[in-house]
Nucleic acid binder design. Structure first.
Lengths: 158, 158
DNA sequence: TATTGTTATACTCTATAACTATA
DNA sequence: TATAGTTATAGAGTATAACAATA
């Protein structure tokens, strides 16, 4: 997905280029960090072809069995229509099921299949390992602090 | 470009949905924060139709007049070929110029036009205002701390 | 041969708008 | 009328591979 980073390690910043005000901007630092983390996440998931978004969807459905597509859309900040193709993909892979909701026949109740649950259980340790690699230079107090500060950014709901 | 957030304020997290392990994951928090910040950035730039990426390119060329496209590609973590269309866009708007480099006639030396410099100067205060809004709940020490911690994530080069 | 930029192309992600079926 | 999901469609962003000009 990324730009063919053969290494798992950090990118080398280009020689002799000045970044002006960019490093002061929180959005810039967030973006740089996220690009690297996204790439590492994808390569960390053995052959499972799982992106952070797909992983997030599996976690959400697992934590909220029977949830509706619209709720999922809100939770992952996607439009209803975008959720359709995400779910199509997961359903085609046999990881998720859409069950017509008995109480409201317009809605689908979402569930993980047994396969989906097994995959999720297999992925979780890999995600933890990835997480550990990303945070390896921070001590426990710093990790807590970072999560706390990120959560206090405006516009960082969820 | 965003999901029609009429408000500048934070999204309301969906009711009664559990997020499982997601909030523990730094990549998840980064992503949530970045989506919100990206959307706010775009709506903060008056009518200028400037995304964070385009703004970053303007800043980089301004700070490194005469830089080559390949250097720019490295700096913004894009493929050479992707940089072409970014520059096409900026050149069509009269913000950037490609000048054949005298020392190496394969390469283009990149420069802001006078228009580009003026636009950049006009945008900078708007970016500062946006930044202030994003960070409004953090005191100065916390802002420094957040930047420092983000810079110490592995894979967060730049 | 290697590098710089370009083109042609394709793929992914996402949104908008209009549609169906329920409510 | 309003809501839940879907479809059709379009746009943005990005990458890969092949190419021309230059080194």
């Amino acid at each position: 997905m990324g730009r063919g980073n053969d290494e798992t390690s950090a990118q080398t910043p280009p020689e002799g280029i000045r970044f002006g005000m960019l490093p002061e901007l929180i959005g810039y630092r967030l973006r740089i960090a996220q690009i690297g983390i996204f790439r590492d996440f994808c390569t960390s998931m053995d052959e499972a072809e799982i992106t952070p978004t797909l992983f997030g969807v599996l976690v959400l459905i697992d934590a909220n069995p029977g949830m509706k597509q619209t709720q999922l859309a809100d939770a992952i900040q996607l439009d209803r229509s975008s959720v359709v193709s995400v779910l199509d993909k997961l359903e085609a892979r046999g990881l998720v099921e859409r069950v017509r909701a008995p109480d409201n026949r317009r809605a689908n109740a979402l569930h993980l299949t047994a396969t989906g649950r097994h995959l999720l259980q297999r992925l979780i340790p890999q995600v933890r390992t990835h997480e550990e690699r990303v945070l390896q230079d921070l001590d426990p107090a710093e990790r807590v602090q970072l999560r706390k500060l990120l959560g206090r950014l405006l516009l960082a709901a969820g």
